[in-house]
Design a protein around this nucleic acid. Structure first.
Lengths: 243, 243
DNA sequence: GAGTGGTCTAGACCACCCC
DNA sequence: GGGTGGTCTAGACCACTCT
């Protein structure tokens, strides 16, 4: 996480973490793959198994790797059932678990507006793709999303690609562009529905909505997605835990 | 966390975790105290230092214990500078860091309404204390909180006690009632300001506010506080991270 | 210098998965 | 049965804090 600070002393397992992360960045092991066994990595890096173990433990705690006893250690993927909901914090109040369906409104190429350019660390006016979509639960639209990704990392993205893919957006990014989201920061506000969004979500203009701004990061803490979600929260809540 | 499931096999370090937690529940070590050294605990529990270490590692990851190299391991406390802001997720948009001041409106004894009784696992109509307060940043009120705690655990709580204490509410609970908050779950919605709250927050009636419902837990995952916060989020955001 | 937590190693054995 | 991760141990040494 703090690869910028350079402590006077860096433990071995931390260096191993960096080496593993570099292999992930380089695509040596892709999401869903098994990485080599602890023993293999130990001899590769010329350290003891315990040291590799500690490095993997930390990466597993960050949800970058997934350990499965008796099988091996895998690169986390949004393609799996368990992970597909990892970043979805909107839940029904009645406790029922339900997956939303998405309906894409448009996919366009744009110049990055200031807000997303800054957060994605792009120069002003850099090319982005803008995805607009609606998430519905039981055919009732509840979330309107506007998603910005740098054009350079998502060359060739278009409406047909997105629409023909079944699965979560992050699983799509992973499969088609090799970009795995591993972490995100969200800033949440309450806002009034604009007339456009009110129509899409079937509420009256000015209705209070949850505005969820997200920046998502891939390996090496590189920001690669900005999005703004507007959520109708009458029967849904944004759920989070802290300790 | 999952003390309810009983796996066929329970590792030693997990049993040590439970023993340590029991000492925390029993008050053998209080928030701010140093617990015995790893070596001492190892001989007390008749296990190796490495096993105690793993147990403490996990409790430290849950922010229940705090390790300080060269000094010892301490029980986490909301009384310290670092921890006082642990559960405060509202931040200024301009990035400036500022601590809110609180103004108490009332402290009353009530019968628990259904919503908090259920979440605090109390019988309907059980006694609670209800604290109403306003959080201000630079003298501008931004959050209105209504806080419910079971009367049985907070015997004798009254307005004067609360008002005369300087420090965060959780540090007050810790110091005066020996109850340490270690974890919380929040459910967030966007709502319209009622006329009462609108006056307190100096916004117009119907203005969109962030409604943050929280249940906080003490050792052993016992729920001991329910609160509802209503936040004016024009210049503030609720910030969270996920991975 | 003494005491604490932090790292690293090596080896034994256990639980789990799959062939 | 063989391979994987998971636990537990014992010991050496390092980094940090305080006296």
């Amino acid at each position: 996480m703090n690869s910028l600070v350079s402590p006077s002393y860096r433990p071995l397992y931390d260096q191993i973490k960096i080496l593993i992360t570099q292999s992930l960045i380089a695509g040596e092991w892709k999401p869903g793959d098994a990485i080599p066994s602890e023993m293999d990595l130990a001899s590769r890096y010329k350290v003891s198994q315990g040291t590799v173990r500690k490095a993997i433990d930390e990466l597993a705690a960050e949800n970058i790797l997934i350990r499965r006893q008796g099988k091996g250690t895998y690169v986390a993927s949004h393609t799996t059932e368990r992970s597909s909901t990892r970043f979805l914090r909107i839940n029904r109040d009645d406790g029922q678990i339900e997956y939303p369906t998405s309906q894409f409104i448009s996919v366009t190429r744009e110049k990055a507006p200031e807000i997303s350019a800054n957060l994605l660390e792009l120069r002003a006016g850099a090319g982005i793709y803008c995805i607009k979509r609606l998430l519905s639960y039981q055919d009732l639209p509840q979330v309107y999303d506007e998603i910005h990704v740098p054009a350079t990392y998502f060359k060739g993205l278009d409406e047909n690609m997105v629409k023909s893919y079944s699965g979560s957006l992050y699983s799509f990014f992973e499969t088609r562009f090799g970009i795995a989201m591993i972490r995100a920061e969200e800033h949440i506000k309450a806002v009034s529905a604009s007339s456009d969004v009110a129509k899409l979500l079937n509420v009256s203009e000015g209705y209070p909505l949850l505005q969820v701004d997200r920046v998502a990061f891939t390996y090496g803490d590189r920001p690669v997605e900005w999005r703004r979600g507007l959520c109708h929260t009458d029967q849904f809540s944004y759920v989070t835990e802290m300790s």
